[in-house]
Design a protein around this nucleic acid. Structure first.
Lengths: 212, 212
DNA sequence: ATTCAATCGATTCTTTGATATCGATATGGC
DNA sequence: GCCATATCGATATCAAAGAATCGATTGAAT
């Protein structure tokens, strides 16, 4: 069995490897070398080899890795073959867009239902998912052993919602609100923040123009 | 003038500092210490101080940083006060959602127009932004000196679109397609990839259950 | 059969970011 | 006016990630 914990940056690269390997489908490529992957993705080949060592065991000199095998191993490692249930809180524009997004099942994410504080949207559906009142959140999370919570509420309510989720057994929070969430040890917050991306873009442009 | 280039991880934290400082508005807090910021965001205080040193010059012992001043410096550093023009390619569901999003101006991003290959959506509008045919892309980018391109096309067309953008003078690409983009030296690609976030969430849960 | 080239995997080195420590400074209390 | 304390800023230590090197292995070519 391959090694356990991997670094976050490795984790960022793994989906890229997987996607690249899948994109090769058309051609008759039974084996792929770490060198080839590195070349295609603009990475160092030994980084790729080290990353793959964490998820795979196969890898033959002069040949490379079996493509189909490696794809399966990556999918397994990333949990694509083992769906996780999640619930979403905040059925606003963004929340409803996520509810309608059809790509999640392929990544192993299954949104069971959504919750909202506004009684007018409760009872309605979006993307085939029911939108329920907040009062039912805790009960459903506990009953279904939900471990993933998606927060798409306005910033001022995010912490309160987060606390409620954790109190109901959620261990990983996907936070789309642009506020920092305080969570106890052992709970993960993954922030999805456009301000961060824009900051990186903006900074790049500034550097480009100030140094050149 | 504060130091030049900052690390990417610093850049990720800066918007959080800014947001936290802004959230203090209500109270009569003229000065904020790095220690207080660190505490609120769950960071080490010396990290905060080092990050702030890159964007600010003020900072008095025993007192802290002037809040309004620091906010202004952060906003300036992050480019919020100096709007950048951008264009968007791919007026699908996600593309149109971004066109309608009203938060961009506050982050210093101004989407001029969108482009799409489908003649049926060309000529229509979304969020007050015109959707134009691809043929006009290059001309508009050059004429308006657009430096930021947002890619929301399906993966199979992303590289082609990216090449066209760069050819038209774009220096920073915000990529929502889940494919790796090859770009020449000096051009930045910022990937916005849900697969990556989900991988991190999934991995956390796996570790939680395998080690405990 | 032997040699050569490609590739993997392990070890080492370098760079970078995070944390800890220390002195300097300014404010408030005595 | 002096001292204690909070805070900043700089320096040094530590950890982790990336890059380079090197030996080992395998398949193909001669």
């Amino acid at each position: 069995m391959p090694g356990r914990s991997v670094s976050k940056q490795t984790l960022v690269r793994l989906p890229a490897y997987l996607h690249f390997l899948q994109s090769l489908s058309g051609e008759e490529r039974r084996y792929v070398s770490a060198t080839a992957v590195a070349e295609a993705l603009g990475l160092n080949d030994v980084v790729v080899r080290k990353d793959l060592a964490a998820v795979s065991s196969a890898g033959r000199p002069k040949v490379g890795y079996g493509r189909a095998e490696l794809i399966a191993e990556l999918e397994h490692f990333l949990g694509y073959d083992n769906s996780q249930d999640a619930i979403l809180v905040g059925a606003g524009k963004l929340g409803r867009a996520l509810l309608s997004y059809e790509g999640f099942p392929q990544y192993g994410l299954n949104i069971l239902a959504a919750f909202d504080a506004d009684p007018r949207v409760c009872g309605t559906e979006e993307g085939g998912k029911k939108i329920l009142p907040m009062e039912k959140l805790s009960n459903l999370c506990r009953r279904m052993k939900v471990r993933i919570g998606i927060i798409t509420v306005p910033g001022e309510h995010a912490q309160k919602v987060c606390d409620a989720l954790i109190e109901s057994g959620v261990l990983a929070v996907w936070n789309f609100a642009s506020v920092h969430l305080n969570v106890p040890e052992g709970v993960l917050v993954q922030n999805e923040n456009m301000a961060v991306s824009l900051a990186i873009l903006s900074n790049h442009l500034k550097e480009r123009f100030s140094t050149k």
